[in-house]
Design a protein around this nucleic acid. Structure first.
Lengths: 180, 180
DNA sequence: CAGGTCATGTAAAGCGTTACATGATTTT
DNA sequence: AAAATCATGTAACGCTTTACATGACCTG
């Protein structure tokens, strides 16, 4: 029994979805889980070997032409481990990290225009993200798995919310004398 | 000119808000910025000294009784650095990290009940968070600074959105034959 | 006088990104 | 023939958390 780290669990899940190589996992992760869980090669390849040592995945060499390639699949122990993780209560909540919010927190010390521009830039980035996600949504009808679709919908709806919030904040501050 | 890291900038901002010791900064950060930018002592104290070496903050010993204490304040260079950062365009976007979403992504391989429970737990954690944030909101009328209030509102509204999303996802999946 | 708060700090480990390096195959 | 893609990997660095350590002061 080894202690699995988050990236290790992501790998198990990806293999369950039918992906076979480190490269494949990275490709899909960059399109999908990146929005709530990123991976890099520097983590991926060493972790695949750790998982193999632990007997959770089995790899074999399957070169495509003269190009070396390692394909992996879950072992029974790997499936069990994945399921156990998926069904265990999550201890860690949901974490947001945002430099823009930090700047907003300290915005009393900046020009108002500059702060408004920070928020506008955040909105624009989320509008771009929304466009990407919606493009994926259009092709999602034929997806075999429901999980990825649910997180995609989450991403879309959250981004919409963020864009709305930015729009509201970009308005000049309304006088608050009708309040209270 | 040293390269500032995020924690260093958080410290500059906190000193601008009038906080004086590492301990004070940690206390406030744990109540406020924690939701989008956390700090730990392991980063805080070494970074305060780095900032002092760089001439951005000035510290002096001011023991309270026999208890040693270092109080810091921003230098002119520190104020300039803070302002420059606040007004520079943010490169990094906003990042969400969520183990629950990762589990949802792979939820095709778990019992439906287990997944529903993950979401319910996420909702409960956010309901608790909401209660805390709303308690702060109640006392916010007398706050001197507007920035912290804006991020507090952000936190409240986002948490409300997350709770709503969880509620919707907790409902049994509706038949989708009216769609398309 | 016990427990909590004020206050500062360090060492080690964990996690992750970045940058670099390599080379074959496929597409244009 | 060049550019893009497939494919694998490592080393160094940076950030953050965790765990530990210490001790004075204040409150009930």
């Amino acid at each position: 029994m080894i202690e699995l780290n988050p990236t290790g669990r992501l790998i198990l899940g990806m293999l369950a979805l039918g992906l076979r190589t480190g490269y494949d996992i990275k490709q899909l992760a960059d399109k999908s889980t990146r929005h709530f869980w990123a991976v890099s090669y520097g983590q991926l390849y060493p972790e695949l070997r750790r998982l193999e040592e632990a007997g959770l995945v089995a790899g074999r060499s399957e070169p495509s032409g003269g190009r070396p390639r390692q394909v992996y699949e879950l072992t029974d122990a790997g499936w069990a481990e994945l399921r156990e993780w998926l069904e265990a209560p999550s201890t860690t909540s949901w974490e947001v990290r945002s430099e823009v919010l930090l700047k907003l927190f300290f915005s009393d010390f900046a020009e108002e225009v500059a702060t408004r521009e920070q928020i506008a830039a955040l909105r624009r980035r989320h509008e771009e993200k929304l466009a990407t996600l919606r493009a994926m949504d259009a092709g999602a009808a034929e997806w075999r798995h429901r999980g990825p679709y649910r997180t995609l919908r989450f991403g879309i709806e959250l981004s919409e919310w963020v864009v709305d919030w930015c729009r509201r904040e970009e308005l000049p501050a309304a006088d608050t004398d009708s309040e209270e």
